[in-house]
Simulated assay, not measured.
Amino acid sequence: MIIKTIENSEKVNFMELLLLADEDWKMIEKYLYRGELFALYDDDLKSVCVVTQESDCICELKNIATYEKWHGEGYGSKLLDHIFSYYKDKHATMLVGTGNVPWIMRFYKKSGFKVSHRIRNFFTDNYDHPMFEDGVQLVDMVYLKKDL
C-alpha cells in the first residue's frame, strides 16, 4: 500500500472518485486546487482525500472517498491515519463537514472526531438539487473536529 500526494496538474484525473463524496463539480473546484490531494493505492487506486489549510492552526478534510466495492476494507481509515500524522506538526486541529448520516458519523467518530457545530441549511442553500445519502435528505452540514 502506498499513499501519494498529487500535484495540481494531475488533480482533475481524480474527479470521478471525488464526485462520490461530493456530487457537485463546482463545489469540488472551490477547494481542490487550494488543498492537498492524497491518493491511496493498493495495487490500484482505492481512496482519495483533499485537505485544506483554513488558518495557522486549523486544517479541514474537505473530501474523502473510497470506491464503493472497497468500502469496509479499511482504506479510508488508513488514509485518515496518514493525514493525521502528516498534519500533526503543522496544525493543532482538523475539521470535517458532513451530512448527518449515521454510517458517516460513525466512521468519523471511530477516527477520533467529535461533533463541533453545524451550519443550518448548508446543503439546501449551496446545491441546486436535493441531496440524499442512504435515503436521508442532507440539509445541515455537521462539523466535527479532532485535535491532532
Score class of each variant (00 low, 15 high):
I2E: 03
I6R: 00
I6H: 02
E7C: 08
E10H: 09
K11S: 05
V12H: 06
L17T: 04
L18R: 00
L19E: 04
L20G: 07
L20M: 13
D24F: 11
D24Q: 06
D24I: 03
W25L: 11
K26T: 10
I28R: 08
E29R: 13
K30H: 13
Y31M: 03
L32Q: 04
R34N: 14
R34I: 07
L37I: 12
L40D: 12
Y41H: 10
L45M: 06
S47D: 01
Q53A: 04
S55L: 12
L61M: 10
I64N: 00
T66D: 07
E68Y: 11
K69N: 08
L79H: 06
L79C: 04
D81E: 14
D81P: 04
F84K: 10
Y86Q: 06
K88W: 12
H91G: 07
H91A: 13
A92E: 11
L95P: 00
L95F: 01
G99T: 07
I104A: 06
M105G: 15
Y108S: 02
Y108A: 04
Y108T: 03
K109R: 03
S111G: 15
S111D: 13
S111K: 09
S111R: 14
K114A: 01
V115M: 15
H117I: 10
R120S: 13
R120K: 15
F122I: 02
T124A: 10
Y127E: 02
D128F: 10
H129G: 04
H129W: 12
M131S: 09
E133A: 12
G135M: 12
L138F: 11
V139I: 07
D140T: 11
V142A: 00
K145W: 02
D147Y: 15
L148N: 13
